[in-house]
Write a protein that binds this DNA or RNA. Sequence first.
DNA 1: CTGTCATGATGACAAGTGTCATACGCCGCA
DNA 2: TGCGGCGTATGACACTTGTCATCATGACAG
Lengths: 204, 204
Amino acid sequence: MAKTIKVVLAEDQGMVRGALSVLLGIEPDIEVVASAADGDEALRLVGQLRPQILVTDIEMPKSTGLELTARVRNLYPETRVVILTTFARPGYLRRALDAGAHGYLLKDRPSTELADAVRRVHQGLRVVDPGLAAEVWNAEPDPLTDREREILRRAGEGESTAEVAKALRLSDGTVRNYLSEAISKLGAHNRVEAARLARAKGWL
Amino acid sequence: MAKTIKVVLAEDQGMVRGALSVLLGIEPDIEVVASAADGDEALRLVGQLRPQILVTDIEMPKSTGLELTARVRNLYPETRVVILTTFARPGYLRRALDAGAHGYLLKDRPSTELADAVRRVHQGLRVVDPGLAAEVWNAEPDPLTDREREILRRAGEGESTAEVAKALRLSDGTVRNYLSEAISKLGAHNRVEAARLARAKGWL
DNA sequence: CTGTCATGATGACAAGTGTCATACGCCGCA
DNA sequence: TGCGGCGTATGACACTTGTCATCATGACAG
């Protein structure tokens, strides 16, 4: 196959970076021309090598995959970006698409999907994890008010009602009211579970 | 090279699992005979296939890599275990070695080290990340007993005292005793803070 | 200007949590 | 053989947390 898709790979964990590189490299039509351990290095490599595709993690040192995506979008628009991440958070997906990503793939998915996603994005298609895409539309919006969120966050870190009240200069009872409200909105049974649920949704 | 090292791989993220499998598979002397997405499946596969090496992540559904290591150690001692994890926590390393692991490798390291580590462990050597090994000697040891740890873990996820008691078939009061003890040992003021502190040290 | 909503408060009660003393059996180590 | 540590339990007490009713204020949309 003459037509080769050039890919740059950005991923901070060396072991995973190397393994993904091999995984993509065995495909006859894909060539990993370089890989980077952080966002800045990745941007430099994309500028130098002008790959058709950049595959990038989100959580990386120096600059995140989301920042990287936006920069690549502006500076080298001919390179399309596939986000590859652990996090199935609707908030991340939305921000990734806003930043101009063409693909959003979860590390949970079978490894066979990666090369496929690269090919599809190379052909100009969008590839978004189906479960996650659905979630974004149903997207229950964050039911918490700012106050509730802030108080739940602190309580979720281990601050007692009294400590939260002092820190925010509220009465003790008010803090308990907000927590009660938050617990009820989230369908939890106590502050710890409430904080955990909210965190999972990306609301904290 | 006739002698092939049979490996079972346990890692919950499909993408990483597939990629690591390919990475190890390209080595002429290593064969990945199966891979699992959780601890229970991994244990089953080890029992069935009796590989020389099990490469496992720590944080997995159903049972963790540390529990898995202990079980493999007891049931199939001829299989040696290499832990492959994101977490450079001394507590994890200590528990991994206590559980009978022969290798402890970080996902941060270059991917070339994985096959090497597998070979060394297969030869009967121990392979431990050097930076982490140093830390273990200075590190305060985990002050929690197994029971305290398990109970604190559950409480830290939002289970109430009553739920924990039911799940572990303990009396309500006993659970509160353990939590009280754990909170005091960790110098925390409540279960949430205690869980947070323990997690940061790698004790949960 | 009226209804709705977020913020903030109080008081009361029920439920859950943290602490302490005390106790028993088991195991391993000296 | 005895001591210490672990696991488990009970009862009692104080304290924290969760729920509910009720109220007051200010902002904002209709």
